[in-house]
Structure formats: C-alpha cells, structure tokens
C-alpha cells in the first residue's frame, strides 16, 4: 500500500501538476510550436531543394544532395543541435549581439528535418508515373516546366502523410533545444516540466509535459492514418458509363 501511495505521489501529484500547467500552456506550448512549425516549414523548403537536386540529370547536385542527406540523417539529433547551437552561438552573438538560442535551434532542427523531408519528397516525385512527364513534354512544356507544373505537385500530394509524421518528430525533437540554454520565457514544454520536477523533487510536472505532447501528437497520427486511408482507397471516383460515346463521331466506320 505504501509503495502504491509512493508511486502515485511521484507521478500523479495533482497539486504539483496544477502549479506547472498554466506556465506550460502559456509559455511552453507556444515555444514548442514555434520551434516545430518554423523548422517544419523551413525543412520543407530545404527538403524540396534537396529532392530536386536528388533527381537532377546532372551528377554534381545529385551527389551533394546524397552526401548531405546521409550526414544529417546519420547523426543523432542531440549531437547536431549541440554542434550547431554551441558552435555558432558565439558567432551569432558577435554579429547580432543576440544570445537567443531559438534561431540556431531552429536551424539545427531544419537541417535535420530537411534531410528526411528531402528523401520523402524525392520518393514521392519519383513515384509519379513516367507518362505524366512524357505527356507534359509532348504538349511542348520544357523539362523544368513539366516538373514544376505536373510532376512535383503530384509527388508532394502523395507524401503529405509522411510530412505530418515529420512534424510529429519535430514536436518531440524540439525538446532538445533546452541544451542550448533557455531564458525563463524561452522555455518549451519539456524544459518547464523538467525545471519544476527538479525544484519539487517530484516527477509529476514531467508527466504533465508528456500528456501535453501526446495531446499534440496523437491527433496528428490520426490525421496521418486518415490521409493514408483516403489515399489508398481514393476518394473513390465513381466511374460513369460512357454516356455520350454514341453521340460524337458520326463517322464511325469500324
């Protein structure tokens, strides 16, 4: 009985949770979203550039994209964040006078997300039927216009679920930014929970942080499942009978 009581108090101390939740919602949540969403958007731009380089007919951009992707997918997130954040921190301070770790934190998350998103975009673009490029070129569009107008938009549509998965990963990975040293107002969800846990010697604030992450990520995973399902089943296209086939073409001879 004592043990159970002890565990309940460690993880589910309602008072400790109640004290930290307002700050988590007003400070932590916006900061987590700023980190995840801005690196998600920048990561998509970087990823698109990498994908286009990756399918280039020229070997040089292809190789640059390949090496970049291998490096940034192969490193642990914590290492990239520390190297970028701590390594470039002093340079940024010298140039701008700012010590805000957010820009470099976002940069590090973007560099990593870009590598993953680039591969997602590339596979999506490459999965578009070859006939699409051929039909577009047969109309007289250049290779570049065909890619921009016809092939890439279809490739991106197909990988939307995978992109949402990346956003989920970024929401979680944004917690690592605490390593760069955050002012009180810069703390994201995890850091606020962690600080409160350290101060009270109780883990309940971290449990509250965990619940908040799940409130963000679980609906997103369901969005992914929904999109996947819709894509697999198609918004199934009611195929109509060829109702006017007999009307056109008075010249049928065959």
């Amino acid at each position: 009985m004592d043990v159970l009581q002890q565990l309940l108090k460690t993880f589910f101390d309602w008072q400790a949770m109640g004290e930290v939740i307002p700050q988590m919602l007003t400070v932590g949540l916006p900061n987590t979203l700023i980190l995840a969403v801005s690196s998600g958007i920048l990561g998509c731009i970087l990823g698109l550039v990498l994908a286009v380089m990756g399918i280039s007919r020229n070997a040089v951009p292809r190789w640059i994209a390949r090496i970049y992707t291998d490096v940034f997918r192969g490193l642990p997130a914590i290492l990239t964040i520390l190297l970028i954040g701590l390594g470039f921190g002093p340079v940024i301070r010298l140039l701008t006078g700012s010590t805000n770790p957010f820009p470099l934190g976002i940069a590090a998350l973007t560099l990593m997300a870009g590598a993953y998103i680039g591969e997602i975009f590339r596979s999506g673009i490459q999965s578009v039927d070859k006939g699409q490029l051929e039909a577009s070129r047969a109309l007289g569009f250049s290779y570049t216009s065909s890619m921009v107008l016809v092939v890439i938009p279809q490739g991106i549509r197909r990988v939307l679920p995978a992109l949402v998965n990346q956003l989920i990963a970024l929401i979680k990975d944004s917690s690592l930014i605490y390593l760069l040293g955050l002012l009180s107002s810069q703390r994201e969800i995890f850091r606020i929970g962690n600080d409160a846990a350290a101060n009270t010697g109780n883990l309940s604030p971290l449990v509250a942080a965990g619940v908040l992450y799940l409130i963000l990520t679980i609906p997103l995973t369901h969005v992914v499942n929904f999109m996947d399902k819709r894509m697999r089943e198609g918004k199934r296209a009611r195929i109509e009978p060829d109702d006017v086939a007999g009307v056109v073409g008075k010249g049928a001879q065959t």
């Binding site: 006017v244 007999g246 008075k250 010249g251 065959t254």
Partner: peptide, 26 residues
C-alpha cells in the same frame, strides 16, 4: 464497349483533314 467512341472521334478528325499518324491494333 468504349473503343467505338474514341475511334469515331479519330475518324472525324481524319475526315476533317487533320494530318495523323495512328499506331493501332484496330
């Protein structure tokens, strides 16, 4: 059952004076 509609359209084009190269099994 859908072949006819397309062939008749191609026939109209041919009769209308379009220059056409038609690879076909028909």
């Amino acid at each position: 059952e859908l072949v006819k509609g397309v062939l008749s359209l191609m026939t109209d084009l041919s009769k209308g004076g379009m220059t056409m190269v038609v690879v076909t099994h028909e």
